[in-house]
C-alpha cells in the first residue's frame, strides 16, 4: 500500500502556500518568478495525485500542458526582465513601482 493521496495533497498545499509567500514578500523579480514556479509545481503535484487516486491518465496529460505553458512563460518572463534590467540595472520589482498613485 502506497502513501495515501491526502498526504500528497497536504504537501502540495504547503508547497503552494510557500510559493505564494515568496511571491508576496520577496522583492527580487527573479525570486518572485521562482516562487511562481513553485506554485505551478504544487498544482502539478496535485494533478498527478488526483490522476492516481481516480485512476485516470488525464491528470498527467494536464501536467504535460502545464509544463509547456510554464516553459513558455519563463522564456517570455525572463526576456522581459532582461529588457528592463538592461535599462535600469536593478533586480528589484519595487523599483518598477513608477505606476503608483
Amino acid at each position: 500500500m502506497t502513501v495515501p493521496g491526502s498526504w500528497y495533497l497536504i504537501l502540495s498545499a504547503l508547497l503552494f502556500s510557500l510559493g505564494a509567500l515568496g511571491f508576496f514578500t520577496r522583492r527580487n523579480v527573479l525570486i518572485m518568478f521562482m516562487s511562481l514556479e513553485l506554485m505551478l509545481n504544487a498544482v502539478n503535484l496535485t494533478f498527478v495525485t488526483f490522476s492516481r487516486m481516480l485512476g485516470d491518465i488525464g491528470g498527467q496529460t494536464m501536467v504535460f500542458f502545464v509544463l509547456v505553458v510554464a516553459a513558455a512563460e519563463v522564456v517570455v518572463g525572463l526576456g522581459i526582465i532582461m529588457a528592463i534590467f538592461r535599462r535600469r540595472s536593478s533586480a528589484t520589482a519595487d523599483d518598477l513601482s513608477i505606476f503608483r498613485g
Binding site: Y8, L45, V48, F64
Partner: peptide, 11 residues
C-alpha cells in the same frame, strides 16, 4: 521523485 512514486514516470 514523488511523480515516480505515483507511477508518473514520463512526467
Amino acid at each position: 521523485i514523488l511523480f515516480i512514486e505515483q507511477d508518473a514516470q514520463f512526467l
